[in-house]
Design a protein around this nucleic acid. Structure first.
Lengths: 212, 212
DNA sequence: TGTACATCAGTGAACGCGCGTTCACTGATGTAC
DNA sequence: TGTACATCAGTGAACGCGCGTTCACTGATGTAC
C-alpha cells in the first residue's frame, strides 16, 4: 500500500501540495470509491507527513469534497467529449436529440470506465447549489447537470420538446441514466458483456427520448 | 451510543441471538446505512460479548449480508402493500398498468421512508443469482426484482406490452425508478417538498409507462 | 547589495478511538445409559 | 427417574491495526529596511 509513490523530494517545500493531495485522493477514489479517500494514505503517496495536509484542508471531509469536485469535472469532460462527436448538420430536432443521447452515453461511459470516480462524484454535498461551481465544470465551463440542462434547452428551441414539459425534465432523464449507471457498476447488471450493455443502454435512451 | 438497549438478560443462553443480531444490525442500517452495520455495536445492543457473534456469523460481512437480505425483504413487503391497493376491476390492460405503477410507487416510498435500509438492500452481493432467495422475499414469496418481473408479465398477458419488448424490460423500469430513488434520498432532489416529490414521481412513472 | 525578521509550509511524535478478530475459558443444555 | 458427559452458546481479555487529529517544533522563503 504505502510502498507506491516513494517520497523522493529534494526541497523542503513541496510547491504544490494542495493539488498533489487532490490528485492522490483522486487516484484513491478511482480505485476504491469515496471511502478509499483516506487522508493519511494521500499524504503517504505524496511523500509528506500526515499532518501536512492540514495546511491545505480543514479536515478529511474538505479533502474528500475537493476530490468530489474533481470527479464531477472529469464527468463533465467525458460528456463534452461525447457531445463533440455529434455532427451538427441536418434537422435541428434530430441534432438536439442526438446531443441528448450523447449526454447520456458520455455519462454511462464514464460510470463504466471510472466507477470509483463516478461514485465519488455523487458522494458529497449533492445539492443543486454547487451545480454552478466552476471546480465541477468541464472545458465548456458547465457542470454535468448544467450540460444536461443546456441540451434540453436546445431540444425545446428545436421544437423537439414542448416547452411546458421542459421544467424538471433534467430529473427524468437524469434518474433513468443514473439508475442504469448504478445497476451497471454496483448492481445486478455488472455481469453483462459489452454487447448486452450496449443494447440496454440504447433501449433506455430510446425510452427517455420517447417518454420525455 | 452504547447506553441504548441495556444488556438486561437473565439466562446465560440468549435463545435467539442470531435473529437478535440481524434485528440490531437492521436498526443500525436504518439509521446509518450499510457502513453503520458494525458488529461490535450490534452485540452491544443485544447485550452480549462481541465475539458471541462468531457463533452465528463467519464474520462481519456475513452479518451485513443477512441484514441486506432482511432489507430486501422489507422492500418486497412495501411493494406488496402498494400492489394490494390496486383494484382488480376493469380493463385488464389498465389494471396491469396500475400494478406496474404500484411497484414503482412502493419502491420509491420505501426508499424515502427508509433510506438507510434502502441503501443497505443494494449494498452487498447484488447479483441476479440471489434474486430468488426466500430470505429476500415478501409475503408473496417474491423478491422485489421478481415482483417487478411478474407485473411485467401481467402487462404482456393483458396486451399492454408487446411480448418482444418484454425481455430486459425489468432493467429499463428498474433503472428509472432506482435512479430517481437515489436522487431523492442522497442526491440533489433531497430538498424537494412532498408535493414536488410526488409530481416528479408521477412524471417519471408516466415516462416509463409510455417509453417501455 | 546585504541583513533581520515575519511568515508559514512541512516535521516528528504522540493521542485516543473503535474496530474486527482470536484465544482459552465457563456454564447451561439435552441426550445416552 | 437419576446421573455422566458431550455439545456448544456465550465470556473475558487481549491483539494489532489504521485512522483522524493535535501539539510544539524546524526550516525555507520573501519582504522591509
Amino acid at each position: 500500500m504505502s510502498t507506491f509513490f516513494p517520497p523522493k523530494r529534494s526541497t523542503y517545500r513541496h510547491g504544490d501540495l494542495k493539488h498533489a493531495l487532490v490528485a492522490a485522493g483522486t487516484e484513491l477514489a478511482r480505485t476504491g470509491g469515496p471511502d478509499a479517500v483516506v487522508l493519511r494514505e494521500a499524504t503517504r503517496r505524496v511523500g509528506v507527513a500526515p499532518n501536512a495536509a492540514y495546511r491545505h484542508f480543514a479536515d478529511r471531509k474538505a479533502l474528500l469534497e475537493a476530490v468530489c469536485s474533481a470527479a464531477q469535472s472529469s464527468l463533465a469532460v467525458a460528456i463534452e467529449q461525447e457531445l463533440a462527436t455529434v455532427r451538427a448538420a441536418g434537422d435541428p430536432a434530430d441534432v438536439a436529440r442526438a446531443r441528448l443521447r450523447a449526454v447520456g452515453i458520455g455519462y454511462l461511459r464514464f460510470a463504466q470506465k471510472e466507477p470509483g470516480l463516478f461514485r465519488t462524484a455523487f458522494s458529497a454535498s449533492p445539492d443543486l447549489e454547487n451545480v454552478g461551481d466552476p471546480a465541477r465544470a468541464g472545458a465548456s465551463g458547465l457542470s454535468p447537470f448544467l450540460l444536461l440542462g443546456s441540451v434540453l434547452d436546445e431540444l425545446v428551441e428545436a421544437g423537439a420538446l414542448p416547452k411546458e414539459r421542459r421544467p424538471g425534465a433534467e430529473f427524468l432523464a437524469w434518474s433513468s441514466v443514473h439508475g442504469l449507471a448504478m445497476l451497471l457498476i454496483d448492481g445486478p447488471l455488472r455481469a453483462l458483456n459489452n454487447k448486452q450493455t450496449h443494447a440496454i443502454i440504447e433501449r433506455l435512451l430510446d425510452m427517455v427520448d420517447q417518454g420525455l
